[in-house]
């Protein structure tokens, strides 16, 4: 363990060529075990030299960057799970009292379900552990949605407003971080790679949709909710707490 970290400190950033050839060498070696190691250690370097020149080289992800992506995607997944559940449990009482809100609730729910699907896919693809608090968030989000739905239209919209404010800010921070990586990579003449660029586009789109929900909520008198300050404060604090926990477990 200590050796490995010492190695990454030595061989990682200071020897870029070596750092780029060794993972390839490793993969090839584990693939064909019976070929002599002498022959293998020379071939990947040669093939690297042939393929490298045209495209800008890929920036290799550091351990910190991987950890950031892991916890960011896990939080996003947990957040979208909560969002779909909040809308699911808000919709029946709200639509019953105010039938004209049916299309809006459906529109917001459909978008959240789409986001949830995106992150389900991303987590499975990048082999990220979902949050261990999954059942807890499930219960908490359903309760939050149901209770604000029962309290009436304004309270439900205040809940949406509080949640989307936190989430929008959270997504904004992620986009900012990814943009920073992109700049750093460009400064070194490298690219982030297709996956990360697609991720950045996805997160931007999702953030815009979340902020659109925020606007809808404000239009629907979210600020008129009776104990507005209390609702807003409690829900936002809850969101921040949930984000904090989901980043870790």
């Amino acid at each position: 363990m200590a050796l490995r970290s010492a190695y990454s400190a030595l061989g990682g950033p200071s020897l870029p060529l070596k750092a780029r050839t060794t993972p390839l060498a490793f993969q090839l070696q584990s693939r064909s075990r019976n070929v002599s190691s002498r022959a293998l250690s020379s071939t990947p370097k040669a093939s690297q030299a042939h393929t490298a020149p045209t495209d800008p080289p890929l920036q290799s992800l550091t351990k910190e960057q991987k950890q950031f992506l892991e916890s960011a995607l896990r939080v996003n997944h947990a957040g979208e799970l909560a969002a779909t559940l909040i809308y699911t449990s808000q919709t029946p009482p709200i639509v019953k009292a105010h039938p004209h809100l049916r299309p809006l609730m459906k529109h917001m729910y459909d978008q959240e379900a789409g986001h949830f699907k995106t992150f389900n896919h991303l987590l499975a693809k990048h082999r990220i552990r979902p949050t261990a608090m999954y059942p807890v968030w499930h219960a908490a989000a359903s309760f939050l949605g149901w209770s604000t739905g029962v309290m009436g239209r304004e309270a439900a919209m205040a809940c949406t407003e509080a949640v989307e404010t936190e989430i929008g800010e959270h997504y904004n921070n992620q986009v900012r971080e990814l943009l920073k990586w992109d700049e750093e990579a460009k400064a070194r003449g490298e690219t982030l790679g297709e996956d990360l660029e697609a991720l950045m586009t996805d997160i931007r789109r999702i953030r815009d949709e979340e902020l659109e929900h925020l606007d809808h909520a404000v239009e629907e008198d979210a600020k008129m909710a009776k104990p507005y300050e209390v609702l807003n404060g409690v829900i936002r604090a809850g969101c921040r707490g949930a984000i904090w926990v989901s980043e870790r477990v």
């Binding site: 991987k66 790679g193 996956d195």
Partner: peptide
């Protein structure tokens, strides 16, 4: 580091 990247080769163990 759990994020499994497809663009980048894994670091050797």
């Amino acid at each position: 580091a759990a994020y499994h990247s497809y663009d980048h080769a894994e670091q050797p163990v």
